[in-house]
């Protein structure tokens, strides 16, 4: 049986919108980071994420088959059409909160990309193969920074714990599944999101222990981003900046 193209499209949008929205968020630091090296590191990370987005959304546009491009999907959709998890659209906060969000995402990204390299869909496998190398590098750096700041000064520790307390309730959405995921799993295109949780918990637990940070109590999980049911109010504001040029000058190109 052929793969349900609508569900494959949905899966690709979820992958591409995660990297697009986080890439844009991280790029907001360009010129504002605490020191030059961190500024460069954040800009480079954003660049990798935007590059990965081009592959995911480029393939999504092909699957959609309406003659659109990755750029069309990035710049001509409104908030309700985005399929990223809520975690990545949250505001940057301070430097510590940005790096905590990056770590919580990188840990998931490095695990899922590794699994996707064995995807039954050769395009998904080759994009994942490329992106996995970058994700491995990102998680190495964001882990180091979370440890450095968590197990740092009293002030940096306090801020990192506050960042974790704020962000952790958004992590659960990464592991939720619905009919799209069931179809992807059945076709061998992508792993069941829930099956990544044990590896994720092990990786995050190890880093947080070293960072002297503790996971917040409570199992409540915010969701609605990856299904498109409901985004936070932050996404719309972000899009007004990210999509400003196309909104002000529709069809502008160079």
């Amino acid at each position: 049986m052929a793969v349900d193209q609508g569900k494959l499209l949905e899966f690709l949008l979820r992958m591409g919108d995660n990297t697009l929205v986080l890439g844009h968020r991280v790029s907001e630091w360009c010129g504002h980071a605490p020191v030059l090296e961190e500024d460069i590191a954040l800009a480079n990370t954003a660049l990798d994420l935007i590059g990965q987005t081009q592959f995911w959304l480029g393939y999504a546009a092909e699957v959609q088959g309406e003659g659109r491009t990755a750029d069309d999907l990035a710049f001509l959709r409104d908030a309700w059409d985005f399929r990223n998890v809520l975690l990545v659209e949250l505001p940057n906060g301070d430097f510590g909160q940005t790096l905590m969000r990056q770590f919580l995402f990188d840990a998931w990204s490095s695990i899922i990309l590794d699994r996707l390299t064995a995807s039954s869909d050769p395009r998904v496998a080759e994009i994942a193969g490329k992106a996995a190398k970058e994700a491995a590098y990102h998680v190495e750096r964001s882990s180091d920074t979370v440890i450095g700041l968590g197990d740092g000064t009293e002030e940096s520790h306090k801020r990192m714990q506050a960042a974790l307390d704020y962000l952790y309730p958004y992590v659960g959405e990464l592991f939720e599944s619905d009919a799209v995921d069931a179809a992807m799993t059945e076709e061998g295109i992508a792993p069941d999101p829930a099956s990544l949780r044990a590896d994720y918990n092990a990786l995050v637990g190890k880093v947080l222990a070293e960072a002297t940070l503790r996971l917040p109590e409570g199992a409540y999980s915010h969701n609605g981003g990856r299904t498109g049911r409901m985004h936070t109010e932050h996404l719309g504001h972000m899009l007004t900046q990210m999509q400003w040029l196309q909104r002000a000058y529709p069809g502008a190109a160079w």
């Binding site: 090296e37 460069i40 590191a41 480079n44």
Partner: peptide
């Protein structure tokens, strides 16, 4: 090592 990232990716 000063930084894991530099002037180009």
């Amino acid at each position: 090592k000063l930084s894991q990232f530099g002037s180009t990716p």
